[in-house]
Design a protein around this nucleic acid. Structure first.
Length: 425
RNA sequence: GGAGAGGUGGCUGAGUGGUCGAAAGCGAACGACUCGAAAUCGUUUAAUAGGAAACUAUUCGUGGGUUCGAAUCCCACCCUCUCCGCCA
């Protein structure tokens, strides 16, 4: 959430900053509302002050005179009543304005960072680094072909259970999924992250706090009888974990790693990635999350990205890092580095992790602060996948495929998986 | 799901219509004493919004209501605890 005061006092700069995203936002409109509300705030405060003084006076008079319906008292009460009427009328207007302003501000995305490349869409994203040698050969199988031949998962049967875009992992497929989760959690906890397993269902307030609501209600599954949603990413419960808190600066940075299932409706993606493990309504993910001092978030962003990268290196999967341009940035993010893993069958890099610096955007929405020189200050939050499990499995299957149809398991994963190769049973 | 109890500052906990943003204690900070410390004594110690400041307003789970005036009375909701039921 953007700072209401900033919009009131500096609407031009807000508008300029947001325009980098390549969309129009009606800041003058909101600006007018905030000015209007401010006037009413002052007016109400003045009237309340008067009314409070009067009430005290009445109290004093009553205790002095013993009787409580002298003519003087009746007049004073009448005056008090007038105050009350005036105030409640103003408060009504204040409430409406507040709601209007709030709903508009909650729909404004974060400011893009000055360092993010300027551009309209993903074609303007910048590749900043590549690692490893992308496997380029003809006759390479897709991961879903490999999965089928090695009987690792079944999507057809899963449509009976649920619908399309769900998967059932089978035998070694299930075991590989489990191995990947454990491997990643171990790597990150050794590296200073505290492990959390948060609830998979989250309430509306939590989704609003991290930026999924109100704008993207279409992208999450909602429970019909409760104010609960299936969490689309552990970023949501992790942000909400410290909602409405003032965190001792000595505790910062706080670094969490969380395994969680993630649920996404994938509305509007009909026909894309319909096969395999790339785009599912339910997938597992290990998520990294930082709460840090505002002065340290740029460094933290580099660190969280390299912590995610570390997993890809350990697994020996070729990847690249992409600096997301202003027009392609997610709603809550000011700067994002995507990690993209090489998928030989489609001869391209696919996103496997998105590492974002949200600055104080989520912290303000969720009211998470720290003390800096005795002043309460919104801290900064960062998140990054470390990594998406399904896509990692897809990458291992495709990059590790052998001519005999088996798949080589990356060395670092062998202790977790229990053997060097995936073969037909 | 049923019955009961309760939600007050960093914590414990008093407060059932008036000067209560809230006693007392604990904790914390600072000062005195001390070579230093402990103990003791003294002072200070909630947040938010606005304001350069003085100060003003709001906040006793949340939202409404009654009243000149609400932590206190009324209504709705949320949450926690205990007991019963059900259950992995």
């Amino acid at each position: 959430m953007l700072d209401q005061k900033l919009i009131r006092e500096n609407p031009k700069s807000v508008e300029e900053n947001l325009s980098l995203r390549g969309k129009l936002y009606d800041i003058p409109q909101i600006h007018k509302l905030t000015i209007n509300k401010k006037e009413i705030d002052v007016e109400i405060s003045d009237l309340q002050s008067e009314s409070k003084k009067l009430s005290k006076l009445i109290g004093q008079e009553i205790s002095k005179s013993q009787s409580n319906n002298s003519e003087e008292l009746i007049n004073l009460k009448k005056k008090g009543n007038e105050y009350r009427n005036k105030i409640s009328k103003l408060e009504e207007r204040q409430r409406i304005l507040e709601q209007e302003i709030n709903s508009q501000i909650l729909n404004l995305p974060n400011f893009p960072s000055k360092d993010a490349p300027i551009g309209k869409d993903e074609s303007h994203n910048i590749e900043v680094k590549t690692w490893g040698d992308p496997l380029k050969k003809e006759d390479l199988k897709s991961h879903w072909e490999i999965g089928e031949s090695l009987n690792l998962f079944d999507s057809i049967k899963s449509t009976k259970i649920s619908k399309s875009r769900f998967i059932t992992l089978i035998g070694n497929g299930a075991k590989l999924e489990r191995a990947l989760i454990n491997f990643m959690l171990d790597m990150h906890t050794k590296n200073g992250y505290l492990e959390l397993i948060p609830p998979a269902l989250v309430n509306s307030e939590s989704l609003t706090g991290s930026g999924q609501l109100p704008k993207f209600s279409n992208e999450s599954f909602k429970c019909s009888n409760d104010d609960l949603w299936l969490s689309p990413t552990a970023e949501v419960p992790l942000t909400a974990f410290h909602k409405n808190e003032i965190i001792d600066p000595k505790r910062l940075p706080i670094k969490y790693v969380a395994y969680s299932p993630c649920f996404r409706r994938e509305a509007g993606s009909y026909g894309r990635d319909t096969r395999g493990l790339i785009r599912l309504h339910q997938f597992n993910k290990v998520e990294l999350y930082w709460f840090c001092d505002p002065s340290e978030s740029i460094e933290a962003h580099k660190k969280i990205t390299s912590d995610a990268e570390n997993i890809l290196r350990q697994l020996n999967l070729p990847y690249r890092i992409v600096d997301i341009c202003t027009g392609d940035l997610g709603f809550s993010s000011s700067r994002t580095f995507d990690l993209e893993v090489w998928l030989p069958s489609s001869k391209c890099y696919r996103e496997i992790s998105s590492c974002s610096n949200c600055l104080d955007f989520q912290a303000r929405r969720s009211s998470i602060r720290t003390k800096i020189e005795k002043k309460n200050t919104y801290l900064h939050t960062l998140n990054g996948s470390g990594l998406a499990i399904g896509r990692t499995m897809a990458a291992i299957l495709e990059n590790g495929q052998q001519t005999d149809g088996s798949v080589k398991i990356p060395d670092a994963l062998v202790p977790y998986f229990g053997s060097n190769f995936l073969k037909t049973a």
